[in-house]
């Protein structure tokens, strides 16, 4: 059984935000009016956190691309009153759209701020409404519920899935061809990774010692966000300037 994880090399990342945009398009993330975005209502399953320290001329800016950390010990999963959010067998932390009651307790419990709420009915201005991703989420029976790019109703929580629908699709295609998914195919599988112009992002199986992500995770530059909280994230960062 694979254990999916991601490695992000901060030395390579240029903070161009292409990952963010690719994610919005891939996953049919609803559009937020500028005034709503100013209120903190915009949804970014994948965001780039900007941290500027010091004052001119001694300024240090840090950029951290931030998908869901898909924790091994997810604080969000524990607090959900209806098991709408859960960690599946392969370690993905997913959200069942059809079950969530919109209490937002998970969003409060997540120390990484990766969970987003649909404050209104989702909408897209023209011509974005013509450009929605027609892909469906993985069949509910394979992942225990509806997740992925399918349009979410208002009043529920949504989050990054590591593009679980792309994973299912690739796996299905490989099965049809009678092959296994290779590490090479996996590395760029999520939309954010595929789009990254700097090739700073890697996806793969952390339980396979030969996989790209496993080898990179052993780097002396490797670290995790808020590691001391005991959440055991499966997103591993490689320190910049190493």
């Amino acid at each position: 059984m694979p254990r999916w994880g991601m490695v992000i090399d901060l030395d390579k990342c240029t903070a161009c935000q292409a990952c963010t945009v690719a994610c919005l398009a891939e996953n049919n993330v609803p559009w937020a009016e500028p005034e709503e975005a100013a209120l903190g209502r915009a949804i970014f399953w994948q965001d780039v956190i900007t941290d500027v320290e010091g004052e001119y001329p001694r300024v240090r800016a840090r950029f951290t691309p931030r998908p869901c950390q898909h924790c091994e010990e997810p604080p969000c999963v524990k607090v959900c009153p209806v098991r709408a959010t859960y960690k599946d067998e392969e370690g993905l932390v997913l959200q069942r759209y059809e079950r969530c009651i919109g209490c937002r307790y998970c969003a409060v419990a997540c120390p990484y701020g990766v969970r987003y709420f649909n404050w209104y009915e989702p909408q897209w201005p023209e011509p974005l409404d013509q450009l929605l991703n027609p892909d469906e989420g993985p069949p509910p029976e394979t992942r225990g519920g509806r997740s992925g790019p399918e349009i979410r109703p208002k009043g529920i929580v949504e989050k990054c899935t590591f593009c679980v629908h792309r994973l299912e699709k690739a796996r299905h295609e490989a099965e049809e061809a009678g092959k296994d998914l290779t590490d090479e195919e996996l590395v760029l599988l999520p939309a954010c990774n595929q789009t990254c112009p700097a090739s700073a992002r890697y996806f793969g199986d952390l339980d396979d010692p030969e996989s790209t992500v496993s080898r990179l995770a052993e780097s002396s530059r490797a670290f995790k966000l808020l590691e001391d909280l005991g959440t055991e994230p499966k997103v591993i960062y490689l320190k910049a300037g190493g």
């Binding site: 009153p81 209806v82 009651i101 529920i156």
Partner: peptide, 22 residues
């Protein structure tokens, strides 16, 4: 406070006692 009060009964149908809400 719920986003989906119409799904309130999920709390009974799928209730998870790991959650302090339960």
């Amino acid at each position: 406070d719920l986003g989906r009060p119409d799904r309130l009964l999920n709390v009974i149908q799928y209730g998870s006692f790991r959650s302090p809400i339960l």
